[in-house]
């Protein structure tokens, strides 16, 4: 199962991809706050999405697999992998529909939100994806402790993202949200974006809400694989960890497109 040869390779590949993604995210932010070219923002998001799809979600694994016996674990994992990807395809139609809704209602305007705060939560999710990838590689290399440590970090960052969105961005707990929003440069007394205030609020709450629901389910999956991983259930049969990781990266992938749609493109209203 484990291949010590790959150890440094896959881990350092994860680091490189993370650096690319971080640079692109910074570039995206820079473009947005300076000359705001939609074409460049879309192009950057597509490149980031492709990097995540290929290197973190390893979509290419769909075409490989042991064809010799239909009863082998490898073959069954291949079937499960296909099932998961079909589900993700189905799920992406929800997010695609939300994107259509946003473009139709808001066009080239965006909700009036703190762009630096958006950049910050995006960074948190991106870093969590990096650790998720690291955890999966560590398990593949036979290092259970490394897998558990990295999955735990992923979970904490994911929870941080979720709470950040709900408490601060949604203003669920004003006592916490006010000082943080102030810290990120939001002026005092600015009218709050609410779900019922207009198309911008409706689109923002619906999109972040649907995404947050997926983050929540992803966190539950992480807890499950962490507990079972601690028992050593995945030392040989590793597919469940791969599934949780791919799902987690999918959440990141969705955010790669939602982030510019909600925080970067066009002018704030």
């Amino acid at each position: 199962m484990s291949n010590k040869q790959q150890h440094p390779n896959l881990l350092s590949q994860g680091v490189f991809i993370f650096v690319y993604l971080a640079v692109l995210t910074a570039l995206e932010f820079f473009v947005a706050v300076t000359f705001n070219s939609v074409a460049i923002l879309v192009a950057v998001a597509v490149v980031k999405g492709a990097l995540v799809l290929w290197y973190y979600m390893h979509v290419n694994k769909l075409s490989e697999g042991d064809e010799s016996s239909h009863e082998s674990y490898a073959y069954k994992s291949g079937t499960n992998r296909l099932g998961l990807w079909l589900f993700l395809v189905s799920d992406s139609f929800v997010f695609g529909g939300l994107m259509v809704m946003r473009l139709s209602l808001l066009g080239m305007t965006r909700p009036d939100l703190s762009q630096t705060l958006g950049f910050f939560v995006t960074a948190v999710l991106l870093i969590s994806s990096f650790f998720m990838n690291r955890g999966e590689v560590e398990l593949h290399n036979g290092n259970r402790q490394g897998f558990l440590r990295n999955t735990m970090i992923t979970f904490v960052l994911g929870l941080f993202f979720l709470l950040g969105v709900i408490i601060v961005e949604w203003h669920a707990v004003p006592a916490i949200a006010e000082p943080i929003l102030h810290l990120f440069g939001e002026p005092e007394g600015k009218p709050l974006l609410t779900a019922s205030s207009g198309p911008a609020g409706a689109a923002f709450f619906m999109m972040t809400g649907m995404h947050a629901f997926h983050v929540l389910t992803g966190l539950i999956l992480l807890v499950i694989v962490w507990i079972n991983g601690k028992k050593g259930l995945y030392d040989e049969k590793q597919y469940p960890v791969e599934a949780a990781a791919v799902y987690w990266h999918f959440i990141d992938l969705v955010w790669i497109f939602f982030y510019p749609a909600l925080y970067l493109i066009g002018t704030a209203v």
């Binding site: 139609f93 529909g97 209602l105 019922s196 198309p199 409706a202 709450f205 619906m206």
Partner: peptide, 29 residues
């Protein structure tokens, strides 16, 4: 199928939370 689910969900939320997706008076369509 996801799209009919989504469109019905949006009307549900419009009714429950006053989100104006399809309500012209709130900028919806």
């Amino acid at each position: 199928t996801q799209l009919i689910g989504l469109s019905f969900q949006l009307v549900m939320f419009q009714r429950l939370f006053g989100m104006g997706f399809f309500d012209p008076s709130k900028g919806g369509n």
